[in-house]
């Protein structure tokens, strides 16, 4: 896990923290702020959006589980 100790790793940790904080903040806002599931659900309502999300999901899985990073 030495990569996490690099400047780039610190930037990724910062970004991950912001992502978690905003997920919690939007989840606790009682729909006043748009949560990630709500955003994804809105895209799932269109055929093109659904296809794009599924394609991105498939590519992410193939890259992370089948190709050595």
């Amino acid at each position: 896990m030495s990569a996490l100790g690099t400047p780039g790793g610190a930037l990724w940790l910062l970004l991950a923290s912001a992502f978690v904080l905003w997920t919690v903040r939007t989840g606790a806002s009682h729909r006043r702020l748009v949560s990630l599931p709500a955003l994804l659900r809105s895209w799932l309502g269109s055929r093109a959006g659904r296809a794009l999300l599924l394609a991105a999901w498939a590519e992410a899985g193939w890259h992370l589980l089948c190709q050595r990073p």
């Binding site: 990569a3 690099t6 400047p7 780039g8 790793g9 930037l11 890259h63 990073p69």
Partner: peptide
């Protein structure tokens, strides 16, 4: 010094 996200996940 600047790893990609897939390197970290890897």
């Amino acid at each position: 010094e600047l790893p990609t996200l897939s390197v970290l996940v890897g």
